[in-house]
Simulated assay, not measured.
Amino acid sequence: MSKVKYYYDSDTLSYRKVERKKGRTLGFVLLFITGSALMGLIFLITVLNSGIDTPKERRLERENENLALQLSILESKMDLASQVLENIQDRDNEIYRILLDANPISDEVRKAGFGGVNRYENLKGYDNSTMIIESHKRMDQITKQLDIQSKSLDEIARLSADKEKLLAAIPAIQPVSNEDLTRMASGFGYRTDPFTKARKKHWGMDFTAPRGTPVYATGDGTISRADANASGYGKHIRITHGYGYESLYAHLNDYNVRPGQNVKRGDLIGFVGSTGRSEAPHLHYEIFKDGDKINPIHFYYGKLSPAEFDELLKQSQQENQSLD
């Protein structure tokens, strides 16, 4: 409750109540409001100029700091990914592709850029646009290199599978075991014919062994023939190995396979005999590559030791009499 104020009236020699005028009261109110607003404005200007952050500014600042930290972590991860990828690329070009006779992938192909000048246009206009754009560019480059390397490894896997099949298919072992072998009677080249005594080309190798000695497939393949219908060979077997290779085993005593049968290197396919144009029990062995007869001596790397191979090579080079 507001206090009542009085004043002394000298004319009436008495105290009278002070009456407030309405206009004057309103003026005081307006003056108070104006003063308060002015003080608030002065305070706001003072706060803004003093460097004191508002809650919103502090939140945005923390978000920017977190963004910078995340980008720094991402850069570190991309550095590590680039190192690992570069190591794989080096092994790809310098080991895998050399062993598999494949052309290396050039750096121009691996590290080619992307087309389009406006690829990162939507990332511009921000405080950290430069850093963000560079991170996106690097990530795109790594992604592209990974895609190229992935396709390269797929190709290497296919080449490896083909190379494994090729190595298994090549006639690479001796068709008669050394334990069962009496001697290597005749090699590839010009030899004396046992029947005509004329010097003629001997197209295979003769392995002397007792009748019934096991004969083994020298490489993976399919039996294409197992009959006695070829002149001079008697009972013989032909194996089609694929990749242009074929092997022939002649003068057999008996078969252990049939035409169309698939065999693996080292499988028992028949037995030594002396059928056909043969002077004594032995195995006549030939190898064909793309239809041409080639020297089998170059393919015995499967089970022979270096010393055994050297001895076999010496015997095969002697120009003696063949057994067929």
Rank of each mutant, 00 (worst) to 15 (best):
E279D: 11
A280S: 04
A280D: 00
P281M: 07
H282Q: 10
L283P: 05
H284C: 13
Y285W: 06
E286S: 03
I287C: 09
I287M: 11
I287A: 06
I287H: 02
F288G: 00
F288P: 00
F288N: 06
F288H: 09
F288Q: 14
K289L: 15
G291Q: 07
G291Y: 06
K293R: 13
K293N: 15
K293M: 12
K293D: 09
I294W: 01
N295K: 07
P296S: 03
P296N: 03
P296Y: 02
I297R: 05
I297N: 01
H298M: 11
Y300T: 02
Y300V: 02
Y300C: 12
Y300E: 02
G302L: 00
G302K: 00
G302N: 01
K303W: 03
L304T: 07
S305C: 08
S305L: 01
P306T: 02
P306V: 04
P306I: 04
A307V: 07
A307T: 13
F309E: 01
D310W: 05
E311N: 13
E311L: 05
E311M: 09
E311D: 14
E311S: 15
L312D: 08
L313N: 08
L313T: 05
K314R: 09
S316E: 10
Q318A: 10
E319H: 13
N320A: 11
N320S: 14
N320M: 11
N320Y: 06
